[in-house]
Amino acid sequence: METFVFFYFASIIVLTAGFVVALKNPIYSALALLVMFFHVAGLFVTLHAEFLAIIQILVYAGAILVLYLFVVMLLNLKREEHFHGQFIVGLFLGCVLFAEAVLLVLKGETTLGENLADSAAPIELTRGNTESIGELLYSTYLFPFEVASLILLVAMVGAVILTKKGILEVKG
């Protein structure tokens, strides 16, 4: 059963990821990405990461993708272009990289499995997923957490400055 669920999610994820790259219209690409985000969230639920599944839907589907669609519609693109001239080279490079990754995994699978079997400790179910993550975030990862807020602040300032008219234009 679990295997079946995994293969359902995995096949939809790969299919929609292919659509994102292959479709001509950017709006269709963004919508394919939306479907992919939902299925990644489903995969997170099967991995007992419920908090991240919700965050994935809220942040990715709710905020990031809406921003993309907003910009796509704002720019009012004519449908020109499609693939770059280096199409063949890019495809070839991607396939080679993927083959390398698969080879590495297949070669290292025995040791990987053993190590995991040794240290496999089920996450304690006395507390919820969200509670455990929150405690970890505010104790061990307190400093990175603060840095993350700083990154968001810098991104906000950067976005405002970049889109404000009259700052980037060349003088004279």
Binding site: V14, A17, G18, V20, V21, E81, H82, F83, H84, Q86, F87, V89, G90, L91, L93, G94, C95, L97, F98, A101
Partner: peptide, 11 residues
């Protein structure tokens, strides 16, 4: 890999 191909081949 699909993402990487997308970065390389789309305009």
């Amino acid at each position: 890999s699909i993402g990487l191909i997308g970065v390389l081949i789309r305009r």
